[in-house]
Design a protein around this nucleic acid. Structure first.
Lengths: 207, 207, 207, 207
DNA sequence: CATTAACCGAGACGGTACGTCTTGTCTTCAG
DNA sequence: CTGAAGACAAGACGTACCGTCTCGGTTAATG
């Protein structure tokens, strides 16, 4: 699911995915998720996952190349569903942004999601290929959904058409992710509201 | 400098810092920096640092608790000097911001700084104490320097006094850090200029 | 074979001996024997054995608790076969003793056997349990073989029945081992012959 | 005292023995003796000796080349005095032997002497130079003292003049040392008496 | 008696080996 | 004939000591 490797690589006698044991797959992801919550990413080991999942280590290595890939699938399992979902459009842009962005900070507040997100972020720093993959499959669709909503607002004459939509989305989302990552401040709903208000000032059409 | 540990811990016969070999300290940080550039953080090992620095492993462990602490000192050595330096103030806020923020993206463009920054960011995700320490000693002073420059502009009547200064700084810096971290776009000077222009729109005083 | 440990100890998830790699076992003992001959016991290291045997260190530690145990198995491999073999009985006691005891000094003259024997003797001084084990499995059977031959001679009326057989055996073997250990004199066949003659004087039946 | 090294070696600025601190010398030997009794030879370390003796490590290395040399001096301190002392001569050879040999087994029964003796024996196996040195300075004089007493007995016509005196001494002492080293039997006074009686049978003059 | 060289306690240093841990592959054996 | 169990080769981990090397602070022989 979250396979990082490019398909052109050596590929030593690939296993047949049709014979894959769904029971083992689930047990591995569950065990990995549990252990991630218990000991954190760094002290998570393949051996512990295998033991917890009652699975041979080979069964993990057969389907995932490394610890990071397993955790990535845990991550994908938890967040993949909602990737690229369009934003609500009630006609009231700030209100719609509030709805979605409150959801984002709520998700980041969940301890397990926090841990997994941090593990994935850390792994992305070390592995550009992984970063590229995740950006394309998960992050970009979400950014595009924001872009789409902003385009609608622009077409309705609510925001200045001369603005770069990419930057506008960044102004909304980067401060939140940044606060969360650097832990430089609380991620309250009030904060989100102030942020949205401030950004909206930059968006209003020039008179 | 980058000691993470709280002072309340066991503390088994601390070494005497006055007898510390400056030669060894430098050799270790240099070796760590070089290796970090060559193989990256994950494949950086204490053994390799010791070998490259012509130093006994114990000499590293005597002064640093872990690999991350060594890399942190490499980082501190490279960036620590400029922490909290006040921004230039020519009276032209956007121009001053451009000066400083061009410098930031230039720094991030340097391959070694890129690797070290990413390693530190990743480590901060796994170690909240470290995050807190770095935020306080390096990040916060820099954010405050931006805050100070914005206060001057506000006092000069150039920006709206009703804005939250913390959020304003975030609007300027978070998008850059975010692009760099998620690799979602190029970090050109032109991008920085557009970003500044957009944020400036949000700051202009209400009529 | 040369396991010293008592079976009552903690026993952390013992490895399964049926899955043991015979290839690795042989390679380890061979490497240990070679290195013992090359650098001696004190400078023999587990790391060197592992490297020479192309074996992971863990594979050694899985099956042997310490360097001494490995060397012990090298020793057992070389000498274990002949333990407790009965002495020849041609009816001529001195001649039979000469045959066997010449063999003993010849064995001690072999450089590898000399090194291993000395290592084992030294280890026995430091580890009484090991001493007890070796005495029971290797030394005692050999002493008993001598005792048996002497009993036959006594039954044939060739030696005084009032003598303590344990002491008689010691009179024959201790001087040889002592000379070898303390290096107080040459271990020639002539020496052995004179020794036997002298001891025989003590054994002749009282008139 | 127990210096093994030959005087021809490099000799890097020898320390001046006249300025040697007697306090340090005694403290080191005492500490070494105590630790030897507590943890045994193998787990005895120079660092522990230095710490226990409140002495810098260099002060040990200045006067002794290695751990074995220190222990050797502990040994020499305990046994050196009596080396080469002539045996009593009351005219009754067996009685005189009993006196001396009872003393020997009593000494071996003392726990500290046992440990040090075993450590020295073990070290002699690994270090032939040391063995040679000890044999010459301590062992040989003692053997010669026995030889001298036997010569007196021979001159008095009490034992056969045709016997090799070296072997005769070995017949008396080797079984004791052997029993002690291999722990093959108890070292009682009764055992010594029987041993002496048996050997005396071999010594009586031929009719 | 003052000087001064050397020894002293202390402990950091460059190293080596230890015994453990984890990785990713290979082998065995039970279902 | 699959897959759990786990032994394997490899190699980094963090620790313990080794024997050498500074660093002040005494201490004892000489001038």
């Amino acid at each position: 699911m979250a396979q990082t490797s490019t398909p052109e690589e050596p590929a030593r006698t690939r296993p047949n995915p049709r014979r894959r044991s769904e029971r083992a797959r689930k047990a591995i992801l569950t065990a990995a998720g549990e252990l991630l919550g218990e000991v954190g990413y760094n002290r998570l080991t393949m051996e512990a996952i295998a033991a917890r999942a009652k699975v041979g280590k080979q069964t993990i290595y057969r389907w995932w190349p490394a610890k990071s890939a397993v955790v990535l699938d845990v991550f994908a399992e938890l967040t993949g569903g909602s990737a690229g979902e369009p934003l609500p459009d009630t006609g009231d842009l700030p209100a719609d942004l509030r709805t979605v962005m409150h959801g984002i900070v709520d998700e980041l507040a969940d301890p397990l999601m926090d841990r997994i997100n941090r593990a994935v972020i850390a792994e992305m720093q070390a592995d550009p290929e992984l970063a590229e993959h995740l950006t394309r499959t998960l992050l970009r669709p979400n950014l595009d959904a924001f872009g789409e909503r902003l385009r609608a607002a622009r077409d309705a004459g609510q925001i200045d058409p001369g603005l770069d939509p990419a930057i506008t989305v960044e102004l909304l989302l980067a401060p939140i992710q940044n606060r969360w990552m650097m832990r430089t401040g609380a991620l309250s709903h009030a904060y989100v509201d102030t942020l949205i208000d401030t950004v909206m000032r930059a968006l209003r059409p020039r008179d």
